[in-house]
Amino acid sequence: MSEKKETLVLGIGNYLMGDEGVGVHAIEVLLKENFPENVHLIDGGTGGFHLLSFFHDYDPLILIDATMDEEPVGTVRLIEPRFASDFPRTLSAHDIGLRDLIETAILSAPLPKIYLIVISIREIRSMVMDLSPEIAQTIPAIVQMVKKIVEKK
């Protein structure tokens, strides 16, 4: 393993649940972009504990996930969380949410630098695989945000 860890962009979410899957949709778009070789893109889906190794193998980690918070729908925010409690509750129906994952990852090793891009959604729509128009239009902003983080690092 090389001394300097490489960058991972990890999209999380359930694409069977409409806007909740925005993280996975964003990865699909990002895969068409040109990134340096040391930037990896993974569709984390509803991976739960299967995602744990990513928190130890990469640094920094750019996470993309949906949230239902008090912000207007379609808000894209960049959070740089330091503690598990800084993470919003994730929405995915994967039983092991992002916060659970972070809390667990902290136990075995220091966390890498994490950039968390959260997209505020209105509702989870079951059995819908497309994004709603107001969330679909956030994708370019997410892509820009990822590019900016990758460039400045």
């Binding site: 359930n14 694409y15 069977l16 889906g45 509803t46 991976g47 739960g48 504990f49 299967h50 995915s92 129906a93 994967h94 039983d95 092991i96």
Partner: peptide
Amino acid sequence: AFTERVCGVCT
């Protein structure tokens, strides 16, 4: 591919 996505534990 769809059914695998319903759960992060059993996949």
